[in-house]
Design a protein around this nucleic acid. Structure first.
Lengths: 231, 231
DNA sequence: CTGCCTGCTGAGACCTTCCTCAGGGAGCGG
DNA sequence: CCGCTCCCTGAGGAAGGTCTCAGCAGGCAG
């Protein structure tokens, strides 16, 4: 882990079972844990204490995790926050990422996965780098989690689909030929035909429109594909 | 990317096509690239120049990538090195990780994947943290790449299998009950039976022995499973 | 307008992953 | 030694991911 010190983690959850499990698990990982069961005390602790990261459940009695996060950020508290959402569809109107969250974990989560996220967050914070995202209007490509969102709604992508979207997003505004995409996404020394790119662009389009996005991927006949406005 | 400066990358490969592709791709990503085509000039450049990372092909004329890495490390050059191996089975007797490599990429690689690895390496270097690995004798669990190796040979694991191994490795020497493993690997609020743990321990054992490992996972009848020696 | 070429898409083959189930076997208490 | 409990494992099914193929549609050149 971080060689310097035991990371200080604030765990906020209203379920005692979850609190206890996280407390034990994170301590076993060499972290120091403080727990809070509701929004107000979480705010109090986060403001006065000095934490390396906050694990924040969204469903809280009294004051939702969103509100807590909002308050903290407006107070200038920059501590990294990992939101824990109860269900998959529990993304409310407000987008946690816009409120300054540094990551998401969806319940029911496996501890191993949560730990990986938390460690990545701590590592980033130590390096002083922000989470690595590509934003194109309402489209957000999270290069660390390898996920995409459109207007606060998750776009579930298979690994290949994600790689294709990332390749397009990296050169947003420019036209990429199918050969270039084959090279970047499928790798060299690959016997695949160009058609597989067409098929995967089709998959991407279907999933993006299912998330409410319109014609994000433009076909430039005879040349290739392009994401976003012409540059 | 790193807010401070354009990262300086040294690319070492004997194939002109690969050099050119990497040069263009990494530049488009905002990095500064220097190329070398053989071992001796790579050594020369790496010693005199100041790079943030080195992409080092193993198959090189004259001086293999392993040797280059070895020389550099014995000279005290600590620049992060990403080894690029041509084939899957091209892991020679020497383990690159033991020689001080910071990561592996196997050809044929997709550029997007290589880029992700390289960025992770740069991020780690900026944070001043080493790659996060668990070592238990000949067994190495790479928590960043989510892979395992035994005696320099890769153990290909499905995500579930990896998570199970990581959970066991995190508490090496202690006995974990099936309920604890279910909790850590499969998550709470899960209706799965204990049998799924038994099945996956079976999968793990099979793959580990295929890699040459013996009885790494010990069954403690009536209590659970344990990795490594009793603590 | 005609015909070709390019791109799109549904169908399906194949593989891997994940999990369940049931039967067989090993350990252990009595 | 008996019988119970715990563990192991082969079989198999469901689901998803990846890729190919063939047919269709729409644009574009002549």
């Amino acid at each position: 882990m971080l060689a310097r010190m035991r990371p200080q983690i604030l765990v906020v959850d209203d379920e005692p079972g979850v609190r206890k499990a996280l407390d034990r698990g994170l301590r076993a990982e060499g972290m120091d844990v403080t727990v809070a069961a509701d929004g107000p005390s979480a705010l109090e602790l986060a403001r006065t204490g000095s934490y390396d990261a906050i694990l924040l459940d969204i469903m809280l009695p009294g004051l939702s995790g969103y509100r807590v996060l909002q308050e903290l950020r407006s107070d200038g508290v920059a501590t990294p926050v990992l939101l824990v959402s109860a269900k998959d569809g529990e993304v409310d109107q407000a987008d946690g990422l816009d409120l300054g969250a540094d990551g998401y974990v969806v319940k029911p989560f496996s501890f191993v996965v949560l730990l990986a996220q938390l460690r990545a967050t701590l590592r980033r914070a130590a390096a002083g780098t922000a989470r690595d995202r590509i934003r194109l209007g309402p489209l957000t490509v999270d290069r660390e989690a390898r996920t995409a969102r459109y207007d606060s709604v998750d776009v579930p992508l298979s690994p290949r689909e994600y790689a294709l979207l990332e390749a397009l997003a990296l050169r947003a505004g420019t036209v990429l030929t199918k050969e270039e995409l084959l090279h970047e996404v499928w790798g060299d020394e690959w016997a695949a035909t160009r058609n597989v790119v067409e098929v995967y662009v089709g998959y991407l389009r279907r999933k993006l429109s299912a998330a409410g996005a319109g014609d994000l991927v433009r076909t430039v006949r005879g040349r290739g594909y392009q994401l976003g406005e012409p540059r």
